[in-house]
Design a protein around this nucleic acid. Sequence first.
RNA 1: GCGCCCUUAGCUCAGUUGGAUAGAGCAACGGUUUUCUAAACCGUGGGUCGGUGGUUCGAAUCCAUCAGGGCGCGCCA
Length: 574
Amino acid sequence: MNIFDHYLNKIILLLKQECNNNRIKLPSNLNNINVEIPPNKFNCDLSSNVALILSKINQQSPIDLGNYLKTILLKDEYIDEIDVVKPGFLNIKLKRIFWSNFVKQILYKPDEYGINRAEKKKSYLIEFVSANPTGPLHVGHCRGAILGDVLSNLLLFTKNQVTREYYVNDHGNQIIHFSNSVFLRIREILYKEKFPNDNVDLYPGEYLIEIANIIINNHKNVKFDNFHDVSEFLTEQSVLESLNMIKKNLKNLGINHDNFVSEKSIVLNKDVEKVVEKLNSKNFLYKGKISAPERKQSKNYQERDQLLFKSTDFGDDKDRALQKSDNSWTYFASDAAYHNNKLNRNFDVLINILGSDHTGYVKRITSVVEALSGEKNKLVCKVSQLVKLIKDGKPFKMSKRKGDYITVEDLISEVGKDATRFIMLNRSSDVELDFDFTKVKEKSKDNPVYYVQYCYARISSVFRNLKNKDISINDNVNLVYSPEEIKVLRKISEWPKCLEISSQKLEPHRLTTYLYELSSEFHSFWNLGKNDKTKRFINENNSITNEKLFFLKLIMIVVKSGMRILGVNTPEKM
RNA sequence: GCGCCCUUAGCUCAGUUGGAUAGAGCAACGGUUUUCUAAACCGUGGGUCGGUGGUUCGAAUCCAUCAGGGCGCGCCA
């Protein structure tokens, strides 16, 4: 249960009663009234702005109104005291019996904690990674991949339906260049023909040699004399082998997609023609010219009539081309077809995770989805900003042209899956992220991954050292918690709120922040036991009180489920 | 020139969707281990929330505008 929502509802109910009895006036909109986490210094459990919101309409000062509301709220069986503070906040302190019930309630249904059953559940399609099948994943793909995966976990945890999808761009010029590169590598291996290093269209990466070797070994009877003769076969095989590499990378990152949708199959199925027809019938297409880009370098731009989609109707800067000069479809056209395909599958919400280099693409694709579906926020695009790699205090850049970029494989073998996932989510996706190899590998409190894992390991060690640990929960047990323990319980009580905001805003980085804070509260409490034996978990009889046992279990539940959503392990020993 | 993102302590960043005296970590300095894991804890110092104007009981948060940084900007995918 979310105690903040719970008390907000209680307060609103009481206000309505007071209003019916003509003792106070209420505005038509009560949405601004809230019950929040109080700032740390106040030592209370809940905080509400009711008096501030209602003071105007009731023509009373917030403090006076607050004092009146206080007398009403104190009738609640679990409210211990209320302070009316400066501008007019009500700071509410709950009785110890409340915390006793709170703990028991979670332990009755540990798997349910944090899930808002009242909330409307939706079905989501999350498209993420969708890197071109022209080689293994590199660090640049990593952040978006983890973001999409954890977002999926999060929405699933809160009982929504989620489909994880990868769009395979196995069609178009890039793929031709790619399979041509594989062809030349095959020639290099078989006939010692030198691979041309000066052609910018070709893919220079070393992994192409690997792919070439696999294809040679699997198809010994195929002759690689002329690219055009084998191009179809070779493209298929090259894409297949790249996808195998990518899937292996994803697996090592702990990511599993439900679907891989092929662009080629969309094109061959004439889905592009269908979507063009659909857009045309809705009057969103026309033949016309678009202006040259405003950038200084592009001087040799030639205007010509082409088939355009009216994305400016939806707020885009310019209308967008669907056909190239050779009358083949643009990437945008086939992507429109793919999104139409998504819409036909009847999801409530579509989410695309994109890298920052695709920001310019967001408007046209949301526009076309709006045009096709008639719904404004049907497609939500989350853009994740760049990752800056740092090693030994110095940034190091990767360059795709030279083919010497850092792969996901390098990353994982260097710092491990857990640290990679946690650190990639340690910041809001809206800001650039420093990924410092030396720091991420560090095993100390400076490294948030270990800090949270260590919290779990410490709790596990208590259970290892205990003899009697199976005390069953009982309605009649009244758990009496100390102020220090209640401090930790308050943090526990914020968990459902954290989950709710994270899933509403699609911001999983809030989980890492929360887990770090919870761990910090726990470590502080742990260290109190150094000076005060009564604060230790295991007492002289090598046993544990109900309070402490349940307290530990609670923290374990939250840390474990939080880390599960992040896809990070919680080892019992460190 | 246009679009998106960012600007908060010396550094890296949170900030509960407009609230209270703005919070962490790092770095600096000082302390804590006969005791459940010191991969930890406690304390001290550190701020014009990029600038300016506006909206209101109240702004880091919303609006306008300016400045600085990042990413992108024909039919490449």
